[in-house]
Design a protein around this nucleic acid. Structure first.
Lengths: 373, 373
DNA sequence: GGGCATTTGTCAACCGGTTGCCATAAATTG
DNA sequence: CAATTTATGGCAACCGGTTGACAAATGCCC
């Protein structure tokens, strides 16, 4: 089975072609005989530019221009046509428009996991910005799989004007291949030759580490995310650099998966490491870690400080609420959309990497280390 | 400004029509002169059924049939065409297909707030089911406004085969008007004449109330949600009924808004009510309420039990983790999608209301009431 | 008022599949 | 073996809006 076929087979039972070819469209007002009729297209939304042209007494192409090329027709005709359109309750048919032009006023956004709160704000940021500029956002999920991701991306390519990949799992080369076809913007990863939006971790991390140093910590553990995660690598680098600057010792621990569960599992290693402060690849790990440590009787932050990354929804539900390095995820989403818009409507293509700032959100899970006793 | 215009004005700076009308499509392989070229459509994805027809030596209409009407052409021709399609890396153009048929293999889903975790699972459930059946899900947000919601719905109607409204804010009549045009399914609300998916609150609530009664509680407070919320009314009814059955006293309190903040604000009233157990309209309220009560020195669940609704993401991040009445939101999303699919592909239209079960998720925030002292 | 530059509107081709209708070929039946 | 049904492929119209080319109308200047 070829991939293409995957988009086909479900049409079987669909009602057949109903374009009235030769019959005149007499709107037979009352047809109360058929009790439970199909959702007919006899609504008021089927006016076309041809209908408008007839009402306004002009050529359809003039209607088309009046409605999509401001200034191309005279003010008088414009008004004539707009009135007719209003009267007929005209709505352009997006498919008819997309067919010759190829543009759809639609952007695609692919995320690894719709239920991962990290993406919520990205989605919302992108959606908001897209809507403001009259674009529609289409969402797809890769279920954390590089293959699914690529399939989804390929499928989307046919129907969107541009694509946003949030924390993509696929190869750099695959991304570049997609970008050759249509504008693509990547969030949370840097890919050579493709416009990207990445949070600059340094500011937030150095704030976090300075805060830890000031509170008497000397050894910091970093719980890493997935090995292939670009962002995890950046964060670890940032932690190392900041620790060096503050003369703290930094150790790296691995997690099995970047979830609450993964956080629980890594608690053993954290205790064994002897670190008194932990930064984790993301908030979910931090929350799981904190739950497990507390269950083992440790007091946060008196005995150990925990700092997450992202400031996801729910990060302040914990007791104590989680200190975290916030990435402006909403900004990432809206920034990526803006980049896409620039790429499409802009003059040249200067679109490079857009960096956004991170900051420390100081809450209760980090603080002064109390002397053991 | 008419609404229609809102979809138009942004096209101004877009690159112009590039359909090579008279020129033959000579794929000039190497064009390394233009350094930063526009995203050309010279990719390999521009094969049409006409190209396939040429390669396979048949008529384009035969190609169309081979690819979308299983059995309509002979096995031999079928294979011929499929091979040609594979060779040319053919992908159907969704717009060309949608234009004559009107079907798009797309569903719309409108939620009040993308960042409200209640909707996450609904979205995912719908997305998953839609994808399995080769439908794409398009998401829109109403920003909690009935007007925005209706606008979004109307705009979507043009491009989708069906629409799902999750906890819609608009009038019953508006919903029915939409449903007259195309299949519509409503989640979390019952609208006469429109297929709906609603969690049946009774089982979950009675489990919760029985558990509270068994733990020595006598007076239960219910913190209500927005006055116009259909679901809030159902939950209050359920709580009253269950309390009557268990011979508990039930009082109703109002919240300002169904958020964490709203939960904090209602803490005063809760304490004043004298209730020893609280059910809240949703988990966010429960979490805010718990935070505020704990900040005031109360111990949960020793002095007061708290039970939420929905079991949203993060409900188990709290200390103690939140007891809650879970609605199978994923099921709601996938159920609504299935209903839509049935409506489109099914035989008759028996689609009525689909009820899904709720259940108590017993965690740490509810339990035995300790004698004061 | 004539000549030239602009506006403004029309014509027709086109985007890429879909499907009703028909002709032919093949299969079935009496 | 003729007659009829069925399977198969081709033809052409069509979905609805877009746009290059061109002609008609208008405006402007001397």
């Amino acid at each position: 089975m070829r991939e293409r076929l995957a988009t086909v087979p479900l049409f079987v039972a669909v009602p057949h072609y109903d374009g009235a070819v030769t019959e005149p469209k007499t709107p037979d007002a009352a047809a109360p005989t058929a009790p439970a009729k199909k959702h007919a297209r006899d609504g008021k939304s089927n006016a076309t530019i041809y209908d408008i042209a007839k009402v306004a007494g002009v050529n359809p192409s003039t209607v088309s221009r009046a409605l999509s090329k401001p200034g191309r027709v005279s003010a008088k005709t414009q008004k004539l046509i707009e009135d007719a359109a209003a009267e007929l309750n005209y709505q352009v048919n997006p498919f008819a428009r997309a067919l010759p032009t190829g543009r759809t006023n639609t952007f695609g956004l692919i995320v690894a996991d719709i239920t991962n709160p990290t993406f919520f704000d990205i989605i919302r940021g992108a959606e908001t910005t897209a809507t403001v500029r009259d674009y529609t956002l289409v969402l797809a999920e890769s279920a954390e799989s590089a293959v699914t991701e690529l399939t989804a991306a390929r499928r989307m390519m046919a129907t969107v004007d541009g694509l946003i990949l949030a924390s993509p799992r696929m190869d750099d080369d695959d991304i570049r291949a997609l970008a050759r076809d249509k504008p693509v913007v990547v969030i949370n990863r840097e890919v050579d030759g493709v416009p990207c939006v990445v949070p600059d971790v340094n500011k937030g991390i150095s704030e976090a580490v300075r805060s830890l140093a000031a509170n008497g910590h000397h050894k910091v553990a970093f719980v890493a995310g997935p090995p292939q995660s670009w962002m995890s690598a950046r964060r670890w680098e940032g932690v190392q650099a900041a620790c060096e600057w503050s003369r703290l010792e930094a150790v790296r621990l691995e997690s099995s998966k970047p979830t609450v569960d993964g956080g629980r599992q890594v608690a053993r290693d954290v205790r064994a490491s002897g670190a008194t402060a932990v930064l984790t690849y993301n908030d979910l790990l931090a929350i799981g870690l904190m739950q497990e440590l507390q269950a083992a009787g440790m007091v946060v932050p008196d005995q150990i400080s925990i700092v997450g990354f992202d400031d996801i929804f729910g990060a302040d539900f914990t007791t104590p609420p989680l200190t975290t390095v916030r990435s402006p995820l909403g900004e990432c989403g809206s920034g990526a959309t803006t980049l896409l818009l620039d790429l499409l409507h802009g003059t040249g293509e200067p679109a490079g990497t857009l960096r956004v700032e991170t900051e420390l959100v100081l809450r209760g899970s980090s603080g002064r280390l109390l002397p053991a006793g």
